[in-house]
Amino acid sequence: MTISDDVVDQASQCLRNIGAALAEAGATFADVVRVRYLLPDRADFEPCWPVLRECFGAVRPAATMLECGLADPAMKIEIEVDARVPAA
Rank of each mutant, 00 (worst) to 15 (best):
T2I: 10
T2M: 13
S4L: 07
D6S: 12
V7K: 06
V7A: 06
V8P: 03
V8H: 02
Q10W: 04
Q10T: 04
S12D: 11
I18K: 05
G19Q: 05
G19V: 02
A20Q: 12
A21E: 10
A25K: 01
G26I: 04
T28A: 02
V32E: 00
V33Y: 02
R34C: 07
R36A: 14
R36C: 11
Y37L: 15
L38D: 09
L38Y: 12
L39Y: 06
P40Q: 07
R42F: 13
D44V: 14
F45M: 12
P47S: 14
W49C: 14
V51I: 15
V51P: 07
V51W: 08
R53P: 10
E54Y: 09
G57M: 03
A58H: 03
A58Q: 05
V59P: 03
R60S: 12
P61D: 08
A62W: 08
A62P: 05
T64R: 08
M65T: 13
L66H: 08
E67P: 00
E67F: 13
E67Q: 13
G69H: 12
L70C: 11
A71K: 09
A71R: 06
D72I: 08
D72L: 10
P73A: 14
A74I: 15
M75K: 14
M75H: 09
K76V: 07
I77G: 00
I77E: 01
E80R: 07
A83P: 03
A83F: 02
A83W: 00
A88L: 01
